[in-house]
């Protein structure tokens, strides 16, 4: 009981941190302090947090341009993440990557990637390396259902299954790829059905309960680690914001969004915490500490230096003989 309480409090704090972090980044974006594309994960937090809670430090994480949550849940500091959004040299990619390209080698975060589906083979490659070395690590690869029509995704699945790679493919099905609803993007709406076609195990569940996400992911991660077998999982979820900050989201109604917010992962977690005896005052204290952490990250990003011009070419090649 005590463990369950402590664990859930930890995950709840992570989810809240991600939400507040992204709300702050949306504000900074509208003030012109962040540029380029900014894709928010708000509403989907339980998926990244639940999955990453089931991982070990040696494991690898690969995801799309909607990558803030994965980095934060993997342990990249809010400071390094916010500084990256601000394009500062103290950012997790030195200000060269921006919102879509968070990388953190120390935490085995292999990046946020901008080409839809293009990162799926890379993830399979990390899994191949683990198998090659026998290091026992597992790779998890996140992507939207929009990836499920592109070749790179299918090739990554085909080879991972053929070669029994220790990987979990996680389709975050938020029902819209940009403004395109499932009815215009997929002939079969359940993306996990593609697993069996490759002889791959599959699973499918929702992401409002972070504990359930973790438990279900654990099964697939154990399969990858212990049996070196891939799994394709579809997680049903919903993004509350537009595809990116420049999307007014005219393709869905306010009612639809309000309806989905009723099963918000933070609400669900708060209910569970209440049942475990966590008081309002404790939740408030968490919120205050999260707000302080985000505010500190913003201050840090504001105060940090821009990358020097010399960094334009600095990372084109690895130094060598």
């Amino acid at each position: 009981m005590q463990d369950e309480r402590t664990e859930l409090l930890k995950l709840y704090r992570q989810m809240l941190l991600i939400r507040r972090f992204e709300e702050a980044s949306a504000k900074a974006y509208s003030q012109g302090k962040i540029g380029g594309f900014l894709h928010l994960y708000i509403g989907q937090e339980a998926c990244a947090v639940g999955t990453l809670a089931a991982l070990e430090p040696r494991d690898y994480v690969v995801t799309t341009y909607r990558d803030h949550a994965q980095a934060l849940a993997r342990g990249t500091s809010a400071r390094a993440c916010m500084a990256e959004l601000y394009g500062k040299v103290t950012g997790c990619s030195k200000g060269l990557g921006g919102s879509m390209h968070f990388f953190d080698a120390d935490n085995h975060m292999l990046g946020g990637h901008g080409i839809v589906g293009g990162h799926c083979p890379i993830a399979a490659g990390a899994a191949l390396a683990s198998k090659y070395r026998g290091d026992g690590a597992v790779t998890v690869c996140f992507f939207g259902e929009g990836s499920a029509t592109i070749g790179a995704f299918h090739e990554a699945l085909a080879l991972s299954a053929l070669w029994n790679l220790p990987i979990v493919f996680i389709c975050e099905n938020n029902e819209y790829s940009m403004g395109t609803p499932l009815s215009r993007s997929l002939s079969v709406h359940d993306v996990s059905q593609k697993g069996p076609a490759f002889g791959m195990e599959r699973d499918r569940f929702g992401a409002s309960d972070v504990n359930e996400v973790r438990a279900r992911m654990q099964v697939a991660i154990d399969r990858a680690r212990n049996e070196s077998k891939p799994t394709l999982i579809e997680v049903a979820l919903y993004r509350y914001r537009g595809h990116s900050m420049s999307d007014p989201g005219k393709y869905r109604t306010a009612d639809e969004i309000e309806e989905r917010k009723k099963t918000d992962c933070l609400l669900v977690a708060e209910g569970k915490l209440g049942a475990l005896g966590v008081t309002e005052a404790e939740l408030l204290a968490i919120a205050e500490s999260v707000d302080a952490e985000v505010e500190d990250a913003v201050q840090f990003a504001e105060a940090s230096a821009e990358p020097d011009e010399s960094l334009i070419e600095a990372f084109t090649y690895a130094p060598g003989v």
């Binding site: 990557g97 011009e309 070419e313």
Partner: peptide, 11 residues
């Protein structure tokens, strides 16, 4: 320039 595009505005 002979480099991949940096995100930072000035760069």
């Amino acid at each position: 320039r002979d480099a991949s595009m940096p995100y930072n505005k000035k760069l």
